[in-house]
Amino acid sequence: MSYGEFPSWRLPRLYLPGCAQHVIQRGNNRAACFYEKADYKAYLSFLKDAAEKYRVAIHAFVLMTNHVHLLVTPSDEKGISRMMQAQGRKYVQYFNFTHGRTGTLWEGRYKSTLVDAENYLLTVYRYIELNPVRAGMVVHASEYPWSSYQGNALGKPVQLLTPHPIYSRLGSTEVERESAYRALFRGRMPERDLAAIREATNKAWVLGDERFKGQIEAKTGRRAAPLGRGGDRKSAAFREVKNQ
């Protein structure tokens, strides 16, 4: 387990080999990081190379105009950070050269959270691939070309993707899995799920049930969720949470 590098006022990232993570990478000052079709293709190509090099399995993704969501599982504690650094560098070089610009492109610190696979993994799949729908860019996830829905739900070849074991349990054949997966997208996501995913990812908490959070706390020695309202409001821990 590794915490990774982090400013003293922020919670450290958690890296547990074999544990899924939801990762968000944003454009600097929310500026666009994709201008045209070739940009999306270049990003996915660089991401694939970096994921293979650092042995990170990518289960779901969506490339929005000014940010990216990934659902990944690392093989070791440094895989995700190395992957993000490698593809980030290459894409910035490509983007600046192609569009005649200079300077940074990405927000300095990508955000991530550990995901309780048994209880939340498919919810995060759905959250990621429904981003274009929530943004009003398309009516249905199938209409957006730059997400893993094309592979997970429609069976289109996406070399970047590695099915998570939870996804594989959806059916005994590819057709059965894709049909069961599409069924998950009927109706809207509950607001409580949206809120839970956003809070956990943006604040570096753990996304899972109490048992899972307890397991993560035992392994890492770091709190997996904010203190309840009954906590000591004068403690350093409370001040840390308040300032998130």
Rank of each mutant, 00 (worst) to 15 (best):
N119I: 04
V158A: 13
D49L: 15
G136C: 09
L47I: 08
L130H: 03
A224I: 01
E178C: 11
V175M: 14
E210L: 13
E174W: 09
V133G: 01
K242P: 06
P163A: 10
S147M: 10
R177T: 04
Q215S: 12
D193L: 05
T73P: 04
L44W: 00
A50H: 06
N28S: 10
P132K: 02
F95H: 10
Y3G: 15
L71V: 03
L161H: 05
A236Y: 09
S142Q: 14
L70S: 02
E118A: 14
I197D: 03
G230K: 10
V158S: 07
G4E: 01
M84G: 10
M83D: 05
R13P: 05
E174T: 09
L63I: 01
A236G: 04
L161V: 02
L47C: 05
Q159L: 15
A38W: 00
V158R: 12
P157Q: 08
K48G: 08
Y149N: 04
T162W: 12
S147I: 04
R198K: 14
R55L: 15
P17Q: 07
I216V: 15
E143T: 05
R82F: 01
C19K: 03
Y15N: 08
H140C: 11
E129M: 09
V62I: 13
L207K: 02
A117C: 10
I58T: 07
K219W: 06
P74F: 04
R30S: 11
K111S: 09
N66F: 10
V133T: 03
G4N: 08
A60I: 00
R82S: 12
Y120H: 11
T98N: 07
Y127T: 00
S8W: 10
F212M: 06
L71C: 00
T173H: 08
H67P: 00
Y35N: 12
G27Q: 01
T104Q: 13
G155D: 04
G155T: 04
K78M: 11
D49A: 15
V115Y: 02
G100F: 08
L44T: 03
A86V: 07
T201D: 01
A50G: 04
Y35E: 13
F212D: 03
I80Q: 02
W106T: 02
L105I: 11
A141Y: 05
S168V: 13
D49C: 12
N96L: 06
A195W: 01
L184T: 03
R177P: 06
R126Y: 04
N152G: 11
M189F: 02
V62W: 05
L63G: 04
N131V: 07
E107D: 10
H22K: 07
T123E: 11
V139H: 14
I80H: 06
H22R: 07
K90R: 15
R239K: 14
G88H: 02
T73S: 14
E178G: 00
K203M: 11
